[in-house]
Structure formats: structure tokens, C-alpha cells
Nucleic acid binder design. Structure first.
Length: 204
DNA sequence: AATGCGATTCTCT
DNA sequence: GAGAATCGCATTT
């Protein structure tokens, strides 16, 4: 059983965020399979986190997904044009989630390239290859993830996460989260995790 | 009904 | 390193 089950997600959010590093995010749509290795994550800790959408604790149309069952998705629109993909964790009613900030392209390179730059993978410049999936908005474009996948079940078949066949040793770096300067003391929490030395991490 | 702005990315300089 | 693009949501009138 390679696919991560509900129990994996039904744990402490910081643990899930770290354990997701090195796992394979799989997207199946239109008969195509796209796979990226998760290399960067951020934890958002519900009502005690000023950086989280759910800090107020109120259920709203946008944040409703974060209150859902662990192992489902929370996809939201940011800056009017980009989607961000999160994994809902902990337990139903506790609005915590892990933002997937970057993946490393593994399989379906041609499909990713077409989604991102509308041209073939072999035509990409080095810079474009590095920018395929090195950010939360970028990976959503590459893996064809949008808000139609909000509240999707990650224990299903369209979008899921699995263990790689051979897991390699990784060093995890802990650092401050990106883009939440308004979050007062919470902006300094070391709730961002990434694989040391990986080229696809968005901010080193 | 109106307002203000963001868990980003891209393109320039 | 700075500025633009762009719109749904949360909050305020």
C-alpha cells in the first residue's frame, strides 16, 4: 500500500508537514499521470496561528475546507490569479493544514511543461525547468490543480500522495514561513520545512 | 453595497 | 529589488 492513508494525515500538523517531505504528490487527470516529489511545506496551525486563514476560528466559505476531514484538500485563490494547495490534517473540526510550497518534477514532465509554458519539455531553458514547480502557485499550474479540487479526498484517485519506491535520506531544514509579514509573532515561527540542498525549494 | 488586500509570480531594472 | 497583474473573500458601512 503505497498511498498514504487517513491515519497519516490524522496526526500533529507539524509532524505531517515534516513527514510529507520526500513523498510523491500524484495528479491523475485526462488519462495523464503527473508526479512531483514534495520538497517544501508549511504548517498552518488553526486558531492559534496569526498566519493562518483560520485564526479567527470562524467557518467561512473559503476556510470551510480546513475544518474538514484529514486527508482532504484545501485549495484557495491567492492574489486573484494563483491557486495554492494544502493538505488538511489533525482531525475534523480542527482547522489545521499543510501548504505544499514546492515539488520536484518526477513523472509527466511533458505534461507539466505544457501546463506551465505551453511548449515541449525539450524546448525549456534551464531557468524554465527550475521554475516548473518551485513555488505553491507554480506547482498548481504544472499539476493542473485548481479550486475544483477543493475538498477533494486525497485517499481517492484523482489527487493523492504516496510513498516513493525507495526513500532516500534527507536533511530537513526548518525556517520561517514565507509571505506572512503581517502575522506578528507568528511570522517568526519555524513552521516551514524543506529538503536541504534541493533545487526546487522556492526560497532558500 | 463598498472597500481593502493577500500563504504569488513574472517582468523588468 | 520593485511594481504590476487581478479577483474572491472577509470585513465594514
Amino acid at each position: 500500500m503505497k498511498k498514504l492513508n487517513r491515519e497519516f494525515y490524522s496526526r500533529d500538523t507539524l509532524e505531517v508537514a515534516k513527514d510529507l517531505l520526500g513523498k510523491y504528490l500524484v495528479r491523475e487527470s485526462k488519462g495523464k499521470k503527473i508526479v512531483g516529489k514534495i520538497v517544501e511545506t508549511e504548517a498552518y496551525m488553526g486558531t492559534k496561528d496569526k498566519g493562518a486563514h483560520t485564526y479567527s476560528g470562524k467557518v467561512t466559505p473559503r476556510t470551510e475546507a480546513m475544518f474538514g476531514i484529514p486527508g482532504t484538500s484545501y485549495v484557495y485563490l491567492i492574489y486573484g490569479m494563483y491557486n495554492c494547495f494544502n493538505v488538511v490534517t489533525k482531525e475534523e473540526g480542527i482547522p489545521e493544514a499543510v501548504l505544499i510550497r514546492a515539488v520536484e518534477p518526477i513523472e509527466g514532465l511533458e505534461e507539466m511543461s505544457l501546463n506551465r509554458f505551453n511548449k515541449s519539455y525539450i524546448e525549456l531553458k534551464k531557468r524554465e525547468i527550475r521554475n516548473l514547480t518551485s513555488g505553491p502557485g507554480k506547482l498548481c499550474i504544472a499539476l493542473d490543480i485548481d479550486r475544483s479540487l477543493n475538498k477533494a479526498d486525497l485517499c481517492g484517485d484523482n489527487l493523492y500522495i504516496e510513498n516513493p519506491d525507495v526513500d532516500e535520506k534527507i536533511n530537513i531544514v526548518e525556517s520561517k514561513r514565507i509571505g506572512i509579514d503581517y502575522a506578528e509573532e507568528a511570522k517568526d515561527y519555524l513552521w516551514r520545512f524543506y529538503i536541504e540542498g534541493n533545487e526546487y525549494v522556492s526560497v532558500k
